[in-house]
Amino acid sequence: MTIAETPGRTSEPAGSPVEQPVLDVRDLRMRYGSTDVLTGVTFTARPGEVLALLGPNGAGKTTTIEILEGFRMRSAGEVAVLGADPAHGDERWRARLGVVLQSWRDHAKWRVRELLAHLGSYYLPYSTDQIRRPWDVDDLIDAVGLNPHAGKRIGQLSGGQRRRLDVAIGIVGRPELLFLDEPTAGFDPEARREFHDLVHRLTDLEQTTILLTTHDLDEAEKLADRILILAGGSIIADGSADQLSRRMSSEAEVKWSRDGQRFVHATTDATTFVRELFQQYGDGIADLEVRRASLEDTYMALVRDFESGRSLATLREFEEASR
């Protein structure tokens, strides 16, 4: 599938058309004992792109991300992260990555500002003319909205504040590539909104490439330029939210009322349908509402298709074997 930009986002950096991908994954395989978790994952990410990796539990999202982070050895396949193999990434390579970890109770005695300043100091020798490392501590605390808590002990932070600190630690070295594994799990709607604003700021100002996993499809649609759906150990769909819903040729739902009566109609061509509706009834139409298939609808359809396809394949294998 070809890659297209989502309108309204300007994440295309000025540069040559043959620029190096930030992530280049080809036929990545992972096997634990006799279980294949990843059976051939292939995708790329360009600088400044935000990718969301979706998929049912156990599909291999976390395994994929941990291989890319260099925290897990792969069984087979070619992987280049910022041009290097993560299995042999050196400290210089590590300094260009950001990993947002799900913290629990580490560094409980440290104060927020103290820890960020300490962890930032490791990045100092990796500062370049283009990217000043580390992020200035006060600016960073400001950016993640931890200003009122900068002097607090980390053990006293609330869950949402801790997650903001996790993000701050992940980006303290001004990473060129950031990994976010379920960043907003357990957030309330307000914290989630603030987190989304932060991610937008990162991609707009810093040109950071982001790979995130989430179960929140709404979040994926809001944040990601491109969505990858991982199921059964491989990528079954790759494209923008719009492309995915178009690929499923799903129908839009048109609702309206006329003479106090409510109507609902499902159509694949909502524009034509609405035009005809107005031509026919003109001012009689009220409360018009057009709802495109949401990412959730598309996602459910894709995963369901994939799973029924897999069960068909199993059935065929079974029939062939019993012949």
Binding site: F71, E91, R92, R94, A95, L101, W104, Y123, I169
Partner: peptide, 10 residues
Amino acid sequence: GTLLRAKAIP
């Protein structure tokens, strides 16, 4: 997870 944090940093 303190150790993992250390591992994630150069």
